[in-house]
Amino acid sequence: MARSAVYRPTPADLAAAEGEIIPDVLAPDLRVLFCGINPGLWSGATGHHFARPGNRFWPALFRSGFTSRLLRPDEQDELLTLGLGITNVVARTTAKAAELTAPELRDGGAALVERVQRYRPRILAVLGLGAYRTAFGRPRTIAGPQSDAIGDTAVWVLPNPSGLNAHYTLDALAAEFRKLRMEAGSLC
């Protein structure tokens, strides 16, 4: 069950969220469908994507110009009015993405392809180089647009916005999101 932004899960709430599945924020014909690796326990406990304090998805979305203000995770459904959505490669929650197996990521990649073919977003933006490399068998992938499309859907790979990803500062992450926004804007 989704809870308000002020809700802070207890350790027991987080433990109980292991293996939970939260609904996608999804509709047909979106401009961009953002795809996380999988939800964390904080997201599982709150029912909101990228909900853990320190996750930089929402600030990067705002700083890149996708949103006119900084949205909270509990406002995730507002993305649909902007032609944006959220899904995950793997649906189940874990404490860390490293708990996912390679077969699970590959199966999740196949399910993601089916979702993309059904909902037809203009761009799929996968948030996590390692997860994309494993899920789609592309070991040398770098951030940015990919040469492989899924039907008419262009594919981009962006850095993981987790606060644990020390390779990218928030400014660098927002710059990568901004490149995607510029491309998404040219498609409208």
Rank of each mutant, 00 (worst) to 15 (best):
M1P: 04
R3C: 04
Y7T: 00
R8L: 07
R8D: 07
T10N: 12
T10A: 11
T10I: 01
P11D: 08
A12W: 04
E18S: 08
E18K: 14
E18P: 03
I21R: 15
P23V: 02
D24C: 03
D24A: 12
D24L: 02
V25A: 07
V25W: 10
V25F: 11
L30C: 11
V32E: 12
L33S: 11
L33H: 08
I37L: 10
P39F: 12
G40T: 06
L41Y: 07
S43C: 02
G44F: 07
G44K: 05
A45G: 08
H48L: 08
F50D: 00
A51I: 14
R52N: 02
R52G: 00
R52F: 01
P53H: 06
P53A: 05
G54V: 03
G54F: 04
R56G: 01
F57W: 02
F57Q: 00
F57D: 01
L61S: 10
R63N: 14
S64H: 10
S64Y: 09
T67S: 09
R69W: 04
L70W: 05
L71E: 01
R72W: 04
R72S: 10
P73W: 05
D74A: 06
L79N: 02
L79P: 03
L80G: 00
L82D: 10
L82I: 09
G83F: 06
L84C: 08
L84R: 13
G85M: 06
N88T: 11
N88S: 12
A91H: 14
T93Q: 07
A95R: 14
K96L: 08
K96Q: 12
E99Q: 15
L100G: 03
T101H: 15
P103V: 07
P103M: 11
L105T: 01
D107K: 15
D107G: 09
G108N: 12
A110D: 12
A111E: 15
L112K: 08
V113R: 13
V113I: 13
R115M: 09
R115H: 05
R118V: 09
Y119M: 07
R122S: 14
R122H: 10
L127E: 04
L127F: 00
L129R: 14
L129I: 12
A131T: 07
R133M: 01
T134H: 06
A135S: 06
A135P: 01
F136C: 02
R138A: 15
R138F: 04
P139Y: 09
P139V: 05
R140I: 02
T141N: 04
P145C: 01
Q146N: 12
A149G: 04
G151M: 10
T153H: 10
A154P: 00
W156I: 02
V157W: 05
V157H: 05
P159Y: 14
N160W: 08
P161W: 08
G163F: 03
G163M: 03
L164E: 05
Y168S: 04
Y168A: 05
D171N: 15
L173S: 10
L173K: 08
A174E: 10
A174P: 12
A175E: 14
E176H: 10
F177Y: 15
R178L: 09
R178Y: 04
M182P: 00
M182A: 13
A184I: 15
